[in-house]
Design a protein around this nucleic acid. Sequence first.
DNA 1: CGCTTGCTTGGAGTGCGCTCCAAGGATCTA
DNA 2: TAGATCCTTGGAGCGCACTCCAAGCAAGCG
Lengths: 154, 154
Amino acid sequence: MTLTESTPVRTARVDDCASAPRAHPRPDGAARYTISEVAAFTGLSAHTLRWYERIGLMPHVDRSHTGQRRFSNKDLDWLAFVGKLRLTGMPVADMVRYAELIRVGEETFEERQELLERTRRDVHRRIAELQDTVAVLDHKISFYAGARKASERV
Amino acid sequence: MTLTESTPVRTARVDDCASAPRAHPRPDGAARYTISEVAAFTGLSAHTLRWYERIGLMPHVDRSHTGQRRFSNKDLDWLAFVGKLRLTGMPVADMVRYAELIRVGEETFEERQELLERTRRDVHRRIAELQDTVAVLDHKISFYAGARKASERV
DNA sequence: CGCTTGCTTGGAGTGCGCTCCAAGGATCTA
DNA sequence: TAGATCCTTGGAGCGCACTCCAAGCAAGCG
């Protein structure tokens, strides 16, 4: 694997929205990553990256003169954001919708904002559910812990 | 639909572990619910309830003299707990494993506790991820909010 | 030059968690 | 008693998000 050695310099700005926090090695400027490098950075498989492009979840990736994909820092930023959305359980179709809105342009700012606000509400709800679940788990775990201690004492 | 009117009385004790917090209407004592009543209570489909039983996720449900399922309060408690586990994203296979441990008996207390503790760790991790994601969403949303305000002022 | 490794494509396959179907028996309401 | 509604089963089907395959082109190395 020939990873262009990373000199992480911040060039920032994902699409037209402020940059996401950086999570990956990020060589500077005109960095052009192969698909396997991006796979290593993101943890996604090359298959999945191609599939994302096919379904319209990637804003058209640049190509080398021989037709191979060359991903940019912008692409990595976008993938990092998609990774976050994936964690929320958002369906891929909704992410594709968001990607389409970006392709259309600035007149979709309002709709994009609404989409993200809906997502944020969903995430808050998920967090509450999970905290609820933790309470149940705590309860059961302490039951087992107590029962086992008691049996030791027999 | 003929729901036996709910007189929620606490008969408690899910399997051999302390009862989970009650989430459903719960008539008292020897209540025997049909599959569609349980579907209404839990939000699961009758199909799913039968499927749960087939794969071993339900401790054998009682039957009427003609062979129809009659669910007990204990069954509802168990389904409520399964619902919590489902929210954590735990694979059904792992829940089946837990159900099997319960069937075996008290000598599996330790393994059950470990399983639940692993699950709790996973849930805490998920919560942290989601909180991270909320931060990113906040960031992007305020970008859009700011951009739209700015364009109004033009 | 041959070899290996990596990339390309369209399309088929996989695993999970349901979801539904067909055919027949049970139960309820008038 | 008729008719509607609910329940039973095994097995097939579905939607999602990948995941892999085959066949072929391209680049680097001894």
